[in-house]
Design a protein around this nucleic acid. Structure first.
Length: 428
RNA sequence: GGCGCCUUGGCCGAGUGGUUAGGCAGAGGCCUGCAAAGCCUCGUACAGCAGUUCGAAUCUGCUAGGCGCCUCCA
């Protein structure tokens, strides 16, 4: 299995099965309903895990919940903890609707403060961080490799979060002293009441679960700098190898621009799922390479929906003799940097060729196995269909067409065959 | 300004040196009482310019356009 690695900007080979392959994929900051772009790292991560397991790997996925953050304090003054809990539930509900299961671990920053504090203490002890007036900052100058992940020269890195307390404008906060007027949650620490900075939680949680080294760290392309750059710095400053491979998914775009809450051009996951259904959205994501941007528009999602129906219809057609040898083309596409558009093309070829067993198995990798299962028609539908079949064989086409309309009104389509008919539920 | 990515037929989107991607939409046909579903046929595309090469969508350079990060961001 080969994957593109941001750190080396090249396609690298994964350790051979059974691995293990331990993945950490950055999750959401929980202050609002997540948008459909936020679904991409989750979906891609769950697909990776699914494929790795299907090919004999021991794969694990950590997906963190950032429930301590300025955005949360801003969005719910005085009630930030309640908002974080509610928004976490939304996120789990929305991502759960994709039918891909749960990550193996869903650590929360609020439940990892001990590990975070311990991590910061180690950084201070090794002179990679310093405490001042209740804040703690990472000393960027102490880590010569700073900037390597995002390909920036350390001396060109600009000031992060301007602040007069810092030794160096590039330094970033590991711990922030509590600001009682705006921050209604805090934790005690050796530096006083406060709360963790954003970047440290991922280093601490990843290492708390996996130890100092693991295989894959993923997230959106917009996290490369500063978030992931700071994570590597924190961990490697302590001599920990941290992630071996970095995977960054492309951004979802809306009318040509990145969909993001700060631009306000978002469709929430909830809205997207309600409008199109989870299966269509999965096909939508499948149709583009995980590293490339995708435009979210009615037109592109409608194309995905049409493809989904084509694949679904395959299961109403006669099956050909199973040909296990054809699995290889599908596998090869995914082994090659997880090329899902190429794999999707193979699914269509199987659909046309009547390789229904392969098609079902291939769909299952992506959480789409459900489309292989046809809905059972309720008794009144079965009865209408029987009557229409009768009318048809009596060549009473007027009644036949009327009954067909009645079925359509109930959401069912009759597909006549030479030797009978199929009853298929209309997909909306 | 710094770093990086992208540009394929009406649309989405693989491919990365030489033989069909695949899909959506559209046209014609087959099938059907008519449909639906399916099947068959039809596009001969690779931003532009220059170069390397026997040969380039695929490599190199330049130009144009677009996007991302450099501040919170999946």
């Amino acid at each position: 299995m080969r994957l593109y690695d941001t750190y080396t900007r090249s396609v690298v080979e994964l350790p051979a099965a059974p691995g293990p392959i331990r993945m950490y994929v950055c999750g959401p900051t929980v202050y609002a309903r997540a948008h459909i772009g936020n679904a991409r790292p989750f979906i891609v991560g769950m697909w990776f895990r699914s494929w790795l397991r299907a090919t004999g790997y021991e794969a694990e996925l950590v997906h963190n919940i950032t429930d301590i953050n300025d955005k949360i304090y801003e969005a719910a003054p005085g009630k930030s903890a309640e908002l974080a809990v509610r928004a976490t539930e939304w996120y789990l509900e929305d991502t759960g609707d994709f039918g891909l299961g749960l990550p193996d671990h869903l650590p929360k920053a609020t439940e990892s403060v001990d590990a975070i504090v311990h991590f910061i203490e180690e950084l201070i002890a090794s002179d990679h961080a310093y405490a001042i007036e209740g804040d703690v900052y990472f000393r960027v100058a102490s880590f010569p490799e700073y900037g390597r992940l995002s390909r920036q020269r350390p001396d060109q890195v600009e000031e992060q979060e301007p602040n007069a307390l810092k030794e160096d404008g590039r330094d970033f906060a590991l711990w922030k002293a509590n600001k009682p007027e705006t921050e209604d949650t805090w934790w005690d620490s050796p530096w006083g009441r406060g709360r963790p900075g954003w970047h440290i939680e991922c280093s601490a949680m990843a290492e708390e679960i996996y130890g100092p080294a693991f295989e894959i760290h993923g997230g959106g392309l917009d996290l490369v700098f500063p978030h992931h750059e700071n994570e590597v710095a924190q961990s490697r400053a302590l001599g920990h190898p941290f992630a071996a491979i970095w995977t960054h998914n492309g951004m979802l775009r809306f009318t040509g621009e990145k969909m993001s809450k700060s631009l306000g051009n978002v469709t929430t996951m909830r809205e997207a799922i309600d409008e199109w259904g989870a299966e269509t959205l999965l096909v939508f994501f499948l149709a583009a390479s995980w590293r490339k941007p995708i435009d979210y528009s009615d037109d592109t999602v409608a194309q995905a929906r049409a493809r989904l129906e084509t694949l679904r219809n395959a299961f109403t057609l006669p099956a050909a003799e199973h040909d296990e040898g054809r699995w290889e083309t599908f596998a090869a596409a995914l082994e090659d940097d997880f090329d899902t558009p190429a794999a999707l093309a193979v699914l269509h070829e199987w659909a046309s060729a009547g390789q229904l067993e392969l098609l079902r198995r291939g769909l299952e990798v992506f959480g789409l196995g459900g489309i292989a299962v046809r809905a059972e028609a309720p008794p009144e539908v079965v009865e209408l269909a029987r009557r229409r079949a009768e009318a048809r064989s009596a060549r009473d086409f007027e009644s036949s067409d009327r009954l067909r309309d009645e079925l359509a009104a109930l959401g069912w389509v009759m597909r006549d065959r030479a030797d009978g008919y199929d009853l298929v539920q209309e997909q909306s």
